[in-house]
């Protein structure tokens, strides 16, 4: 199968700080990739570059074999790559239901000036989405008044109803209590499975990474330091020392199975 998302020689620096250092990356359809790395390692920047928010200094990005390097964020969304944000981006003065309905209207190009929003979209689908993110009973409250965990789910749902091929989530569980984290991931993964969406998520919680990811990529100083199966990457000594911190050493390092990417000794 060809790659769904691919970047070649991606470079970007902000002044003297290198945030993307020659990134060669590819993702296949059906994968569920966790991106790990310390703050400032360039994870969010990588997502921002891929989704058209920031332009790289050099290099190319391909989505479904099409060059999207110079495409606008909006065009990329229309092609099927959508994202959620570290700080949930919802319409704080719209109700939860309206937030979902607006995404559906955007997906189906419903831009009527006269027909009401709720009659423009399929109410059955709205009901299904609200049920699957378990916000049905809060559908008429303003999105801005939701607790953080619910906002995150809503943010992701607003992206997911666009029926993307690839969903990129920037820290879906940050700012959420540790009990809630698993709950959110469980709901999320159920929905992702249901719609067969390939996904990338940035995550700091190693339990969640090892439980839900099919592949892990570790970022160090703007470069991918390790990329492979969760067990391999999480047990890599370099990753344990530089990304996870010493306390995470659980098993003996297994150097042979880890695919080390250039740039890290």
């Amino acid at each position: 199968m060809s790659d769904l998302l691919k970047t070649t020689n991606l470079n970007l620096s902000f002044g003297s700080i290198v945030v993307a250092d020659n990134i060669d990356f590819s993702l296949k359809e059906g994968e569920r990739l966790a991106v790990i790395g310390q703050n400032g390692a360039g994870k969010t920047t990588f997502i921002n570059i891929c989704t058209g928010l920031i332009r790289p200094d050099s290099g190319n990005i391909y989505f479904a074999d099409e060059d999207i390097t110079k495409k606008s964020a909006r065009a990329i969304v229309k092609m099927g790559m959508v994202r959620s944000f570290q700080l949930p981006q919802v319409y704080s003065e719209h109700t939860v239901r309206e937030c979902i309905e607006l995404s559906l209207a955007a997906r189906d190009n419903k831009t009527s000036l006269f027909k009401s929003l709720s009659s423009c979209v399929d109410q059955k689908e709205v009901y299904e989405v609200l049920t699957s993110i378990q916000l049905l009973d809060r559908s008429d409250v303003l999105a801005g008044s939701l607790p953080e965990g619910h906002k995150k789910l809503l943010d992701i749902a607003m992206a997911l109803v666009l029926r993307p091929r690839l969903l990129i989530m920037d820290e879906p569980t940050s700012g959420v209590s540790s009990q809630e984290k698993h709950e959110i991931m469980r709901i999320l993964m159920g929905v992702l499975d249901k719609y067969k969406v390939t996904s990338i998520f940035v995550e700091h919680d190693i339990d969640i990474v090892s439980q839900y990811a099919t592949r892990v990529a570790a970022w160090i100083s703007g470069a991918i330091a390790a990329d492979g199966a969760p067990d391999m990457v999480l047990n890599d000594p370099v990753i344990q020392e530089q990304v996870l911190g010493q306390s995470f050493s659980r098993t003996e390092p297994n150097m042979n199975t880890v695919k080390l990417v250039k740039g890290v000794s």
């Binding site: 909006r74 969304v77 959508v82 981006q89 003065e93 719209h94 607003m158 992206a159 666009l162």
Partner: peptide, 15 residues
Amino acid sequence: CAIKTNETRLEYIGV
């Protein structure tokens, strides 16, 4: 009305 609260999100649903 969503321009008032979140223009970024609007762009990221393809509007």
